[in-house]
Structure formats: C-alpha cells, structure tokens
Measured scan of single mutants.
Amino acid sequence: KEWNEKELQKLHCAFASLPKHKPGFWSEVAAAVGSRSPEECQRKYMENP
C-alpha cells in the first residue's frame, strides 16, 4: 500500500536521528514508523531519500 505523509515523516525523522552504523538500524527505523517492515523502510528511503 502507498505510504502516507505521517509514515514518510516518521521514516525521515527516524533516519535523521538514529545512529546509522548500528546493527539493526532499519529495524529501529521500522519500529519508529510503526506500520512498516525494516525492508519496506529501507526500500522506500532508497527510492526517495
């Protein structure tokens, strides 16, 4: 399903605030978004950083 504005906001906010070198980075991003898997978050971010 399409990403909504709130999900995208959470994605970018989590990406900006979490340490990128940490193992499980995308899992933490997904936990912050709440409604998406780590894979979905990574794919979406890579599509549209």
Rank of each mutant, 00 (worst) to 15 (best):
K1D: 06
A31N: 06
A14D: 02
K44L: 07
E28T: 09
E40N: 02
C13M: 15
K10L: 09
E7V: 00
W26C: 03
A32I: 13
H12N: 08
E28F: 06
K1R: 10
Q42K: 05
E47A: 10
A16Y: 03
R36V: 09
K20D: 08
A16R: 10
Q42E: 15
K10T: 14
L11V: 01
K44Q: 12
E28R: 12
P49N: 08
K6P: 05
S27A: 13
A16F: 07
F25Q: 04
Q42V: 03
W3F: 09
E2G: 11
W26L: 03
R43S: 13
K20F: 03
E2H: 07
P49Q: 15
Q9M: 06
H12S: 08
P38Q: 10
L18G: 10
N48L: 14
G34C: 04
E47K: 08
A14Q: 05
V29Y: 00
E7G: 00
H21K: 13
W3H: 02
R36Y: 07
M46E: 14
M46N: 13
P38F: 04
C13W: 11
R43W: 06
A31V: 09
V29C: 07
Q9I: 07
V33E: 01
L11N: 01
C13P: 01
S37F: 08
P49F: 10
L11W: 07
P38A: 14
Q9W: 04
R43V: 13
A30I: 00
N48G: 12
W3Y: 02
E2Q: 14
P23H: 13
C13N: 13
H12L: 10
S37K: 05
P19T: 06
M46T: 15
P19W: 04
G24V: 07
R36G: 03
P19C: 08
H12W: 04
S35E: 11
S27I: 08
P49K: 02
P19G: 13
N48Y: 09
P23M: 06
F15A: 14
G24A: 09
A14F: 04
E40Q: 10
A30S: 12
Y45W: 12
H12A: 14
N4A: 06
G24T: 14
K22F: 05
E2D: 15
H21G: 14
S37G: 12
H21F: 08
A16T: 09
N48H: 11
R43P: 01
F15W: 10
S27Q: 14
V33A: 03
A14L: 03
L18Q: 10
W3R: 02
W26R: 02
P49R: 15
K44G: 03
L11A: 01
N4E: 05
K22D: 11
K44H: 08
G24L: 11
Q9F: 07
K1C: 07
L11F: 03
S37A: 04
N48D: 15
E40M: 03
A31H: 13
S27P: 14
P23R: 09
S35G: 14
E39C: 07
Y45P: 03
N4H: 02
E7T: 01
E7Q: 02
G24F: 03
A32Y: 08
E2T: 07
K22M: 12
Q42T: 05
Y45S: 14
G24M: 11
R36C: 05
F25R: 03
K6H: 01
V29R: 01
L11Y: 03
A16N: 12
M46R: 13
A14Y: 06
W3L: 02
G34T: 04
C13L: 12
